[in-house]
């Protein structure tokens, strides 16, 4: 076999491998994206989880078959950040602009009754409506249009293995550190307002919120991962 023939067949095999890898990744991503959309809506989360897990299993299978797919850690962090930002956005968007709807009054006041009286005490009594806890609205205004929308965009870029996606995920994870440091200080300072009369004070709130608080702990990974795997 001549050198040229060997080289051409090698390129052909590489092309086939590349094509098969792309197809496998897209197939897995379709399941995971559908799952993430449901998970991010909060109410339909129970439908989203099996869809997401199915996508994850497909990606794992492709990886085991030797195809070039996205690293598992990138997939998990990317979707976790997207879902986390979507969940925060939907709850706070309801509280900011849809606080008089039946959905908000059921969903948010139930949350207030169970874990955080900031969403129960004098609800809808301020001129702006929604939660009346001290400082809560300021956090919503600062974090919703800035941090969470940026985090969803960054997570999408990160999942596409773009360099800007990695950079913006690092930036917004640092935003997350600032946001949660401040928000938890606020919860502690106004603890009497937020925990009085609720069904599960302190422990209930922490059990529920720890999953929202922890995504910024992806920072050590993001700072130490090889940046060359993210294309321009």
């Amino acid at each position: 076999m001549s050198e040229l023939t060997t080289s051409m067949s090698g390129m052909n095999a590489l092309g086939t491998h590349d094509e098969r890898s792309r197809q496998a990744q897209w197939q897995a991503d379709k399941w995971m994206m559908s799952g993430a959309l449901f998970l991010g809506s909060a109410v339909f989360g129970i439908i989203g989880l099996p869809l997401f897990l199915r996508g994850l299993a497909l990606q794992l299978k492709a990886q085991r078959a030797g195809l070039t797919v996205r690293p598992m850690m990138v997939t998990l962090i990317g979707y976790l950040v997207a879902v986390d930002a979507a969940l925060n956005s939907i709850g706070w968007a309801l509280d900011m602009v849809a606080h008089h709807t039946l959905l908000a009054r059921v969903f948010l006041m139930a949350w207030g009754n169970m874990f955080d009286a900031g969403y129960f005490w004098h609800y809808n009594e301020l001129w702006i409506g929604g939660a009346s806890a001290p400082g809560e609205k300021a956090w919503e205004i600062a974090l919703l249009p800035l941090v969470f929308s940026m985090r969803i965009a960054a997570a999408i870029g990160f999942l596409q293995m773009k360099r800007w996606g990695h950079q913006w995920l690092v930036i917004t994870c640092w935003f997350g550190v600032v946001a949660w440091t401040g928000y938890i200080a606020n919860m502690t300072i106004f603890a009497d307002v937020r925990y009085t009369g609720v069904v599960f004070p302190v422990i209930g709130w922490w059990l529920y919120d720890i999953f929202y608080i922890t995504p910024f702990l992806a920072l050590p990974y993001l700072h130490s991962v090889n940046r060359e795997i993210f294309s321009h």
């Binding site: 938890i184 200080a185 919860m187 502690t188 603890a191 009497d192 925990y195 004070p201 302190v202 422990i203 922490w206």
Partner: peptide, 9 residues
């Protein structure tokens, strides 16, 4: 912060 809140609780 968690421990402070638990103490208050």
């Amino acid at each position: 912060m968690f421990l402070i809140q638990m103490y208050m609780y």
